[in-house]
Nucleic acid binder design. Structure first.
Length: 474
RNA sequence: GGCCCCUUCGUCUAGUGGUCUAGGACACUAGCUUUUCAAGCUAGCAGCACGGGUUCGAUUCCCGUAGGGGCUACCA
């Protein structure tokens, strides 16, 4: 059985990189008919928050990445909050202690920090010097009863090398003597990442660990831990990181990094899903994938090795594409509240027509607000340059006058009929259609850019059209 | 500093020891359409980091250099 997991730490919102990791795990599970597990790594008591925890759920839910086991739904391998597994972690640390594969360390953070600084001053690798490695039991007892804080360190077998076999990058080997006795249980009693991760992945029977390649260098430590326990390590797949425009790791400096922020900006979840799926993964020439296609076509083989730069332009393009593709009802539901907020209540049918008329021009959902302004209010500015060009002409007055007169009589007031009026007038005056349409568009919208004229006129309705034709600042 | 990983158009990517005159997409430019802006369609621009090998032949294999990223925490 394929079992994969997404194991975020609740220290902030679900960001792009995390979402992509979650997506790849989810896709792999769904593609393989396996299980996708969500585990919250909240062992950092300082930084973990409940809000962040909820934010992660929200992000995952927005993208439609549902988990088979984890918080809220449980499962047979719980608990799924790492802090609730404290006893499990301590028990396993004790096992290592009993087998002399780990030991207590009483060095203080300050002391360690000092040594690290000195080491780097001497241009040496800053690694733990093993001071507490061979502390006699009596001394341990003494220090303990003196209430000195202690951690548990892994007695790392510093010989040979550890090879990480990876489904994405083949393999990477590490010299063990370059590693040091890292901490597995912190002085607050909670496990460190490398330790908790190994214990939990094993106990949860995770078959594949798919995670960002920033964890690649941690993997030998984890493999050594698996070996110390006599456990079989899972298969690893390290996926490339996502970078910002400056090729540095994606961070707040690059603008929005949480997926929810993108939701708030007016991106559609399917666009985001499609976009991040293509970051570090490709399938032939294809760019647009439905959720189903993603599941069907995803493979770890298709994952790239080099990091990917997050490119808003392409995301925007996809968003526009999806906006043009989703069901009209859904688009309207998305736009309606924004329009009502900006322009007050209006007839649903009217809003519907406006939204659909504007559909092709939207990149982000909120784009509809400024674009729709002239549909909802008479209080819009006229483009000065356009006035010069299309109102200060000899025919402008006559054109608007004639249109007003004829539209006032028109029955029924629908675009096919409206079109005839324009065509006839153009013919009568022996001018191109544009000569008539430009001043009309300016009079009705204040600009030279709008959906097709006849649609605009029909949607606006006779009354508003006549009024605007009359009050146009010629 | 040490170690590890990565390197195809500006960006995301496809690709194979010869079929590569390196394919697609975004962005950009031009054209078409035309009542504008979009959308759509067509075309164009643009890349195998560099240096050595291996080979009859390397973008593709190996080594080095450079550049980028990561790890080196009682963060994950």
């Amino acid at each position: 059985m394929i079992r994969v997991r997404f194991a975020p730490s609740p220290t902030g919102a679900l960001h792009i990189g995390g979402a992509r990791t979650a997506l790849f795990n989810w896709l792999y599970a769904r593609n393989q008919g396996g299980q996708f597990i969500l585990r919250i790594e909240d062992t950092d008591q300082e930084r973990s928050t409940l809000e962040a925890n909820h934010a992660i759920f929200r992000g995952l839910e927005w993208l439609g990445l549902d988990w088979d086991e984890g918080p809220n739904i449980g499962g047979n391998y719980g608990p799924y909050y790492q802090t609730q597994r404290l006893e499990i972690h301590q028990k396993h640390a004790r096992q290592l202690l009993d087998e002399d594969k780990a030991y207590y360390c009483f060095c203080t953070p300050e002391e360690l920090d000092e040594k690290r600084k000195e080491a780097s001053k001497r241009k040496e690798a800053p690694r733990y010097d093993g001071k507490c490695r061979k502390l006699p039991d009596a001394e341990i007892k003494m220090l303990e009863s003196a209430g000195r804080p202690k951690v548990i360190r892994f007695r790392l077998p510093a010989v040979g090398e550890t090879v990480v076999h990876d489904l994405v990058r083949d393999k990477a080997s590490f010299q063990n003597d370059l590693l040091d006795d890292f901490v597995i249980i912190k002085s607050d009693g909670f496990p460190t990442y490398n330790f908790a991760c190994v214990v939990d992945d094993h106990l949860m029977e995770i078959s594949h660990v798919i995670r960002g390649d920033d964890h690649l260098s941690n993997t030998p430590r984890q493999i050594l831990l698996y070996q110390a326990f006599g456990w079989k390590p899972p298969k690893f797949a390290h996926i490339p990181m996502i970078l910002g425009k400056d090729k540095a790791r994606l961070s707040k400096r690059h603008g929005a990094t949480s997926v929810i922020a993108y939701s708030d900006m007016g991106y559609l979840p399917e666009a985001m899903l499609n976009y991040i799926a293509r970051l570090g993964w490709g399938f032939k020439d294809q760019e647009v994938f439905s959720r189903g296609e993603l599941i069907q076509k995803f493979s770890l083989k298709g994952v790239t090795r080099s990091p990917a730069v997050f490119d808003t332009d392409k995301l925007n393009w996809l968003n526009g594409k999806y906006i043009r593709q989703i069901l009209p009802e859904r688009l309207i539901d998305l736009c309606e509240p924004l329009l009502i907020e900006a322009y007050g209540n209006h007839d649903v049918e009217y809003i519907k027509k406006v939204v659909l008329a504007l559909r092709d021009r939207l990149v982000l959902i909120p784009d509809v607000v400024p674009l729709a302004k002239f549909f909802f209010t008479d209080d819009f500015e006229y483009d000065q340059n356009a006035i010069e060009k299309h109102f200060k002409t000899e025919h402008a007055g006559k054109i608007l006058e004639t249109l007003k007169a004829r539209l006032a009589q028109l029955e029924p007031f629908i675009k096919d009929k409206i079109e005839l009026i324009f065509k006839e007038l153009a013919k009568e005056m022996d001018v191109k259609l544009g000569v008539i349409i430009h001043p009309c568009r300016l009079a009705l919208t204040g600009t030279l850019e709008s959906p097709p004229m006849y649609d605009v006129i029909e949607i606006l309705g006779r009354e508003k059209v006549i009024n605007r034709l009359v009050k146009a600042p010629l």
